[in-house]
């Protein structure tokens, strides 16, 4: 009976693909493209009864980060690529599903959700149940590297090997894909957020200057690099002097940021190298021909491709829309149901 109602309501709902990332959540609406691109942040207010009330979600909630009164907290419900707060994630998903449909009732879409490749069955089930509670009729889970590879336009169904490195906010996923399956993957809990934190700590340690997360991210985007480029870039950084306690401005350069990011970048390079080493020679030979594809926000880190090329001696290419690869890939499989069934994971 409920199934029949679901199917009926499904007619009036649009299928969605969701990239539930640690830093940002992207939603792809079948036939329309990416319709939501918002930070994975939820502002909640603690009620006197102990319950939590969701105030804002996404961009509006992010703007509240660090500027909220005591009773309101801005939460990132995803941590290291997986759900850290089940209820808040459910609320966030519900908000996005309703937002793309412009209504709150009669919404029962089919939803494709991307998950990191290394997550456990329990974590997969948590994602599925969150989506179902948020109103999804059918839930399909796709591993992020797979979605990324589809989004980057790699020939994943062929027998040849394809390597994708998806550097997200919380995790970096390295995977070798062949015959529509992940034949080898490795994940490291290193991503954009950890890099931001590394910059924050570096400036704190070296200059006794406390900067915010957003400033750290801005520094990474502006002058962050993985390998020395032709010129040294500089940037003015504003923060609070930890000794005097008053605001202070300093100038830092790209060499210093490279130093700060060294550990994180090395972790990514090591994961790629290890993955290449453990790939059978037949597939590794294909990767040498085709190159390694970088996707995710981390692909924008200046000269990361140069460093990887230097270390692995394999061509490294940046996907066309690195930030959107995952959601575009999962959106693509919404159009091809047979492919969706081949690449989705069981839970």
């Amino acid at each position: 009976m409920f199934k029949a109602v679901d199917s009926f309501l499904g007619v009036f709902s649009n299928d969605l693909a969701v990239d539930l990332g640690t830093a940002n959540t992207l939603v792809y609406l079948k036939g329309k493209g990416i319709v939501v691109r918002e930070p994975s942040v939820v502002a909640v207010q603690k009620m006197p009864t102990g319950k939590q009330k969701v105030l804002k979600v996404g961009m509006e909630a992010k703007q509240m980060l660090g500027r909220t009164p005591g009773s309101i907290t801005a939460i990132r419900p995803m941590k290291d690529g997986v759900i850290a707060d089940f209820d808040i994630t459910e609320e966030m998903l519900r908000y996005f599903i309703h937002k793309v449909h412009n209504r709150k009732t009669m919404v029962r879409p089919r939803v494709v959700i991307c998950v990191p490749s290394g997550i456990t069955q329990v974590e997969k089930r948590a994602v599925k149940e969150s989506a179902e509670s948020a109103g999804a009729r059918e839930v399909y889970l796709i591993e992020e590297p797979m979605a990324s590879a589809i989004g980057a336009g790699l020939p994943i169904t062929e027998a040849s090997g394809n390597m994708i490195v998806d550097i997200g906010g919380g995790t970096t996923e390295v995977a070798v894909i062949s015959l529509a399956g992940i034949v080898y993957s490795q994940s490291t809990r290193m991503g954009g957020d950890k890099m931001d934190d590394a910059i924050l700590q570096y400036i704190k340690r070296k200059y006794n200057l406390q900067i915010g997360e957003r400033m750290a991210e801005a520094i990474k985007i502006e002058i962050g690099e993985a390998y020395p480029g032709p010129e040294v870039l500089t940037m003015e950084v504003k923060g609070r002097d930890l000794v005097s306690g008053i605001p202070k401005t300093i100038e830092i350069n790209s060499d210093e940021i490279r130093e700060a990011l060294k550990e994180g970048v090395n972790a990514i390079v090591d994961t790629v190298r290890q993955c290449l080493e453990r790939t059978p020679p037949e597939l590794a030979a294909d990767i040498v021909d085709k190159g390694i594809f970088l996707a995710g926000g981390g692909a924008y880190l200046r000269n990361l491709d140069v460093l990887l090329r230097e270390v692995t001696k394999v061509p490294v290419l940046i996907a066309e829309d690195p930030l959107d690869c995952v959601v575009l890939g999962s959106g693509k499989v919404l159009d091809e149901l047979h492919l969706l069934k081949r690449v989705s994971v069981s839970y």
Binding site: A159, S160, G161, L179, P280, E282, L283, D286
Partner: peptide, 10 residues
């Protein structure tokens, strides 16, 4: 047995 590697190379 799954045989990996591009058909051309094989």
């Amino acid at each position: 047995t799954t045989i990996f590697g591009s058909e051309e190379r094989r």
